[in-house]
Simulated scan of single mutants.
Amino acid sequence: MKISLLFLLAIIVASCSNTNKPVTGPYLGENLPGNEPQLFAPGFVNDGIATRDITFTPDGNEVYFCKNIGNSRYATILYCKNTENGWTKPEVVSFARDSRYIYIEPCISPDGKKLFFVSNMEQEIDENNRFITDIWVADRSEDKWGTPYKLDTVINSPDPEFFPTVAANGNLYFTREDPTTRANTIYKSTFKNGTYQKPIPMPEEINCGRARFNTTIATDESFMIIPSIGMSDSYGGTDYYISFFNETKGWSIPQNMGEKVNSPTTFQYSASFSPDGKFMFFMSTKANALASGNLDYKTLYKMHNTPESGNSNIYWIDASFIDTLKQKATFIEN
């Protein structure tokens, strides 16, 4: 039986907090994190369903994030909005409800005028059962998003493109997958005179490791976060690395961001920042919702519907630790 996104939404809403007390305050009323990561908005954003890819409008009053079921067979973008009556409960965005397609990796431009995301709309699953995804965008019109449209062939090729990330000057960074080798390459497209220029591959400091994908650019392009696998100092899974840009030296050698955001035998591959850059949000598959004693059905059911059960969750942390990493940046000598 085919599951519809409306059914997915029903599961999501049912799994969220059932309290009638309104959620108020910035960041869905959460206490701000310090130097240690915290699960973001448990019971509201994180609810046991696999959750990743979070982005905010510049005023912080709207948050968008992705949920997926069945290894992303059903995946869509939800949002919550801060109103005079408190934060609304998660709702699927209007253009992301067709269960034939996936809608993932939302990214709101720093000026709040564009919502980029990835979808396989207008595509078919190829012979290798892969989704051929493209980068789409919706423009802001007053307080709503317009009808999404696919970026042209300067950005979207016959190969899969995914995870758009945008700098304040409009420059677009994204990942493209080679259809033969399945290797992922990070590209940059300069935004000039209102037009995206031909993308160019980023240097080896960014295209590092055995595989890399889903990079996140700082709004001022001063650093980039790179989820990478196969690095010599990996914690064991996909880790977040960071590279800093210097006008004369170029990009620094990728540096493991450390145990604050990376964990052994887990996956980390989706990062973003609060609109003011003070907080880093990141996805991880930590499994901290562990049982003690004998297992029974009730315990298993509760674990399955609890954050940190092994599905992906979104965490946040004070981003000031990046300043310490910058002090350790090293560069390849020319």
Rank of each mutant, 00 (worst) to 15 (best):
S15G: 10
S17P: 02
S17W: 06
N20T: 10
V23D: 05
G25H: 12
L32D: 01
F44L: 15
F44V: 15
N46H: 11
R52Q: 13
T55E: 00
P58E: 06
K67S: 03
R73C: 05
R73H: 12
L78H: 09
L78M: 12
T83G: 10
T88P: 04
P90D: 10
S94M: 03
C107T: 04
F116L: 00
F131Y: 15
W136K: 10
V137Y: 12
P164C: 05
T165A: 02
Y173Q: 11
R176T: 07
R176K: 15
R176Y: 00
E177N: 10
E177W: 08
E177G: 03
D178G: 01
A183E: 13
Y187R: 01
S189E: 02
N193A: 14
P203I: 03
G209E: 10
I217C: 11
A218H: 14
A218I: 07
S222W: 04
P227S: 11
T238L: 01
D239Y: 08
Y240S: 08
Y241R: 14
T248M: 04
G250E: 06
Y269K: 10
S270M: 02
F273P: 06
G277Q: 09
L290D: 05
K298V: 15
L300T: 05
T306R: 12
T324Y: 04
N334E: 14
